[in-house]
Design a protein around this nucleic acid. Sequence first.
DNA 1: CCATATATTGAACATTCGTTCCAAAATTGG
DNA 2: CCAATTTTGGAACGAATGTTCAATATATGG
Lengths: 188, 188
Amino acid sequence: MARPKEFDRDEVLEAAIRVFREHGYEGSSAEMLVRAMGIGRQSLYDTFGDKWQLYCAAVQRYVACEIEAHVTALRGAPRALDGIRAMIERVVAEAPQACLGVNSICEFGRSRPELSEIQDASARALHIAIAKRVREAQADGEVAAVLDTEAAAGFVAASFATIRIAARGGADARELHSLGHMAMRALR
Amino acid sequence: MARPKEFDRDEVLEAAIRVFREHGYEGSSAEMLVRAMGIGRQSLYDTFGDKWQLYCAAVQRYVACEIEAHVTALRGAPRALDGIRAMIERVVAEAPQACLGVNSICEFGRSRPELSEIQDASARALHIAIAKRVREAQADGEVAAVLDTEAAAGFVAASFATIRIAARGGADARELHSLGHMAMRALR
DNA sequence: CCATATATTGAACATTCGTTCCAAAATTGG
DNA sequence: CCAATTTTGGAACGAATGTTCAATATATGG
């Protein structure tokens, strides 16, 4: 062993996430990043490789945390529909903060396979968790049985982007709540 | 008078739109722009001022054209609900092409007042046109009368972003169509 | 046809970008 | 305490950025 790092990898990654989610990849300079992360340039490059790898690591960590929060809310209520509602309400509550997942999709579309892979994996995981609860809610008679479960789950997941983009565009809390309510309506 | 310009302002602006919608503001270099627009650097700066003003002009033109297309579809059917459906179907059909409106909101949020003003004005105009047709559809008994008309209109407009982001993320035509269908469901 | 005015072209500008080099500092195992 | 190894901080790099300058070309009005 030799000299240990003076910072915690996950902590500085969180700082990088805060920069990227607000300014995007191209809009975030190395200068902004090292300042926010509180480490030197060389430490950044030693630890993460380069700016692109740092970005991928940030997106990776962000979506992992985000999915965990989604799923926690989703499973937090005995009745499936209440779980779905709670998950959407959480998105509404957090919407004022820009979403790195949405931003990364907007900025790069499907032009970077490495990034798409991260996005796809998290989308799949979330979709499965939501679909399970939708199926439950259908069995409960709370969500229309005629609905295709997968389609409904996809719609719920897509609604997250709806709400977040609306917030990024300046929608207030009342409007965001209304969007969540309308999304729930589609499930009846 | 003196020597006239060799290009059409709107034509080269369309070319700039194609670059910006795909790569964003920060992701589009002056080099990429002049190449796509087919004019010299100096002509670009003489005509549009600088990169930021060119971007604003591009967004301005894009949203104006987009709203016109939305409203044309919206009013193209005798029954209000059919107009709403046609408008959503058009968004689904065009979704494979990135939307400059959505991208500009994602990239800048509300950090550039000049840009927000353009976005807000177009959002207001679209909202009013949709709300009118939603009210009609409510009178027809096609859209639930208990729904707040403004909330429903806001939801329809927000659904455009839903569909477009899903497409940017890689959703296929079937999934996009399903999202449009689910959005219509919320209005019943 | 000339004077004027604008457009075009391509080189050049300063600045910022992402990245790397290098010397000094700090920690651990022997 | 020494040797080995890694981290750190800051200067430095070439490349790319957005923008402008200067010279040439091309049109119009008198």
